[in-house]
């Protein structure tokens, strides 16, 4: 194992660099298209001279390529620049303060989805067309269709307002405050996992090599546990990357509902305030996370499926 695997990982890592640069560039170009700048909003009457000073200080009058070069240099040295609205704070500080909460929320929700959804899918696939299967698929179809804001609101309505089982309605402090947001965010991905795992397992079970494994007299436990499951997990791993995008989207809503001071909530505030160095910094950050997640997915994929190591030379 591992020359070819190692070579693949290195190739894949090297390839990530231009993608990150391109994403920074795209974000930069997009952000420059936004009309207006934060110092010229009508609500804040600032004398013309101060405005110009501020614009100079933040480099808003430099040509775009200078701004871009400065910005890329900043990102690569982990310096996302100052906030344009909150003048005492840098984007780095904002990230440092808000990001860990979002990361924890997303991570726990993903964990919940995997721990709950994957076994559910496996159980359903082991007994296709049983009541368990129908129940799991009902959950999976409904869970994926109901928007998370309804689930979150109903959670609060029942668990906090009606039954008062000891969960708070908002915040992100002790574990009691984390249960509802994590489950509300993780339910749809769990439903997705369950459905995907069931589908791929049933499909894998039809493969010729499973019949070979049976013809060899292998025990059912080994056939399901090694041959079927290992091959079924490949598409599941591939789907985990895009799921992260979903978690980001979902966290915007969940943080709003549970009043969690995370990155998603801050992002919305920054967009409304036109604090575009913050919007840009956070967009780049989220993009890099998605890119890194896809990187991890691809490497896992190569570990699970030996064919890809060579095919994608």
């Amino acid at each position: 194992m591992s020359g070819s695997l190692l070579a693949y990982v290195v190739r894949r890592l090297v390839w990530t660099i231009p993608v990150v640069l391109l994403v920074i560039f795209l974000t930069f170009v997009l952000m420059r298209q936004i009309e207006g700048n934060p110092f010229r909003t009508s609500e804040r009457a600032v004398p013309e001279s101060i405005q110009r000073n501020l614009e100079r200080k933040y480099g808003l009058n430099d040509p775009w390529y200078v701004q871009y070069a400065m910005y890329t240099k900043g990102v690569l040295t982990f310096d996302l620049g100052p906030s344009l609205v909150l003048r005492q704070r840098t984007v780095n500080e904002i990230v440092k303060e808000h990001f860990p909460r979002s990361l924890e929320l997303g991570g726990l929700a993903f964990l919940f989805a995997a721990v709950f959804g994957i076994p559910l899918g496996i159980l359903a696939a082991l007994r296709p067309n049983s009541w368990l299967d129908y129940g799991a698929m009902f959950f999976s179809n409904v869970g994926f269709a109901v928007p998370s804001f309804l689930i979150a609101t109903l959670f609060i309505y029942y668990f906090v307002v009606q039954w008062d089982v000891g969960f708070p309605t908002s915040g992100w402090t002790n574990w009691e405050s984390k249960v509802l947001p994590v489950v509300a965010l993780g339910l749809a991905p769990a439903a997705y996992f369950a459905r995907l795992v069931r589908g791929t397992m049933l499909e894998t079970a039809q493969q010729d090599y499973i019949r070979t494994a049976q013809a060899k007299g292998l025990r059912r436990r080994r056939i399901v546990g090694l041959h079927v499951l290992r091959n079924s997990l490949i598409p599941v791993v591939t789907a985990a990357g895009p799921l992260l995008g979903y978690l980001i989207t979902g966290s915007f809503v969940i943080e709003e509902i549970f009043a969690i001071p995370g990155i998603g909530r801050y992002y919305v505030t920054a967009v409304t305030a036109r604090d575009y160095s913050v919007v840009m910094g956070l967009t780049v950050l989220l993009s890099v996370i998605v890119i890194l997640a896809n990187l991890v997915v691809d490497i896992l994929y190569a570990v699970l499926d030996p064919r890809t190591r060579e095919a994608r030379a």
Binding site: D208, T212, K216, G217, R220, L304, R307
Partner: peptide, 24 residues
């Protein structure tokens, strides 16, 4: 039956390209 398969009666199939598990 599992103990008969592979031990007393073995079988080979038509398509060798799909009869082996690609990930093992």
């Amino acid at each position: 039956l599992e103990s008969v398969r592979g031990r007393e009666i073995a079988m080979i199939f038509q398509d060798p390209m799909t009869s082996l598990n690609p990930t093992l």
